[in-house]
């Protein structure tokens, strides 16, 4: 565990908490893509199957449980409790266009062809693109509430911090995982446009609004 990894994990945790607070406080999930949230739930479940096979540390186990539980809590709030506020019409991204290619890619490019490893690899590929329905929703509506922007910023920062963690681990431990590094780089690149808008607008107290 190094400082980048810890900061990345905490940023990830903060993102999830911000999202739950936004939905709970405003009693609304307007502006949040349920499609992205479904994809994140698929990511956590397929990645953390090793909860039952491998024990790494108490920290690791607890964080995995928090990520899985909170993602299902988010889905419950969006699709059951505050269903009426869900922005159906704008959240029209077809997730099968992400799920299928990621699965095929995981079957083709993986570290070892075992069910757990293929599912882990699938989750890494899917996580890289899981935010696309959310970014698509923001671009369709042309704006995002400030707490939604903070959520997206924390969520994007997490993988960017992991990139620093991987650089650190390569030099400090000789450890590297090319699949995670490439997918993590793509994931971070997808947020760049948003990062730019966040820094130039939201941090200056303006609403995140896309140019018409």
């Amino acid at each position: 565990m190094n400082i980048f990894r810890l900061a990345g994990d905490l940023s990830h945790l903060l993102a999830i908490i911000l999202l739950l607070i936004k939905i709970w406080k405003t009693r609304s999930c307007a502006g949040i893509s349920g499609k992205s949230q479904i994809l994140f739930a698929v990511v956590y479940v397929s990645r953390y199957l090793d909860l039952v096979t491998t024990f790494i540390s108490l920290y690791n186990t607890l964080m995995k449980l928090v990520f899985i539980t909170s993602s299902f809590a988010t889905l419950y709030l969006m699709y059951v409790k505050f269903k009426a506020t869900y922005d159906h019409n704008h959240d029209s991204f077809r997730i099968e266009f992400l799920l299928l290619p990621c699965f095929v890619l995981a079957l083709l490019i993986n570290a070892s062809f075992t069910p757990l490893e293929v599912l882990w690899t699938f989750s890494i590929y899917l996580e890289a693109v899981a935010i696309l329905p959310q970014l698509f929703l923001v671009s369709k509506t042309g704006e995002a509430e400030s707490i939604t922007s903070h959520y997206l910023f924390a969520l994007g920062s997490y993988r960017a911090l992991y990139l620093l963690n991987w650089i650190y681990r390569y030099y400090a431990e000789g450890h590297y995982d090319l699949i995670a590094i490439f997918a993590g780089a793509i994931q971070t690149i997808l947020y760049c446009d948003f990062f730019y808008l966040y820094i130039t607008k939201v941090l200056k107290g303006k609403k995140l609004q896309l140019p018409a």
Binding site: R5, D9, H12, R47, D50, T54, I56, N60, M63, K64, F67, A111, S112, T114, E117, W120, Y162, N165, A180
Partner: peptide, 10 residues
């Protein structure tokens, strides 16, 4: 052992 890969990250 590549077959029993341990993923220690989240």
């Amino acid at each position: 052992n590549r077959d029993q890969q341990q993923h220690d990250e989240l």
